[in-house]
Computed example of a mutant assay.
Amino acid sequence: MRLSPECRTFNSTTVEKVIMDMKARLKDPDIARLFENTYLNTLGTLH
């Protein structure tokens, strides 16, 4: 589960747009949530 926007230490309109676009394309809500979590986790672990 994502932190609320006011608690996040990193904010990006581009990242949010990618997430919203993919969630609109992925009709299964479980798959959409899985994408959101794994995408954000991947971005958070890149150096």
Rank of each mutant, 00 (worst) to 15 (best):
K17I: 05
S4N: 12
I31W: 07
A32F: 05
R33C: 07
T14G: 15
M20G: 04
I31Q: 13
L26Q: 00
L3G: 03
E16H: 04
M20W: 03
C7A: 15
T14I: 09
E6R: 10
P5Y: 02
D21M: 05
V18A: 05
T9D: 12
R8F: 01
V18P: 00
F10Y: 14
S12G: 10
K27Q: 11
A32N: 02
K23N: 02
R25E: 06
R8M: 13
R33A: 13
R25S: 06
N11H: 12
D21E: 12
S12N: 05
E16C: 08
E16M: 05
S12I: 07
D30W: 07
T14H: 12
E16I: 04
I31V: 15
S4E: 11
T13H: 10
L26V: 15
D21A: 08
A24Y: 00
S4K: 11
C7W: 13
E6K: 14
E6L: 11
A32E: 01
P29I: 03
K27M: 06
I31E: 10
D28Q: 09
P5Q: 02
R2H: 05
S12Y: 06
T13Q: 15
R2W: 03
I19K: 01
S4Q: 09
D21C: 02
P5G: 01
R2D: 05
L3A: 14
L34M: 11
E6C: 11
V18R: 04
N11M: 08
D30S: 11
R8C: 08
M22P: 03
I31F: 08
R2I: 03
E6W: 10
D28R: 13
R33I: 05
S4V: 12
L3K: 14
M1I: 15
T9I: 15
R8V: 02
V18C: 02
K23L: 01
S4T: 10
T9C: 14
I19F: 00
I31P: 00
M22G: 02
D28H: 06
A32D: 00
L3W: 06
S12C: 09
M1T: 08
M22F: 08
K27S: 08
M1V: 09
D21Q: 07
L34F: 12
N11W: 13
T13E: 15
A24S: 07
L34S: 12
F10T: 11
L3E: 08
T13Y: 09
R2N: 05
E16D: 10
P29G: 04
L26P: 00
V18H: 01
K17P: 04
M22I: 08
K27I: 04
S12F: 06
C7I: 15
R2C: 03
L34W: 06
V18I: 14
T9M: 15
M1F: 12
L3F: 12
L26G: 01
D30K: 12
T9P: 06
C7R: 15
L26T: 05
E6M: 11
N11Y: 12
T9L: 15
N11K: 14
K27W: 04
R33N: 11
F10W: 14
I31A: 10
K23P: 04
M22W: 01
M1R: 07
L3I: 11
R25N: 09
K23V: 05
C7E: 14
M20F: 07
M22R: 07
P5S: 06
L26F: 10
L3N: 09
D30G: 10
D21S: 08
K27A: 08
N11T: 12
V15I: 08
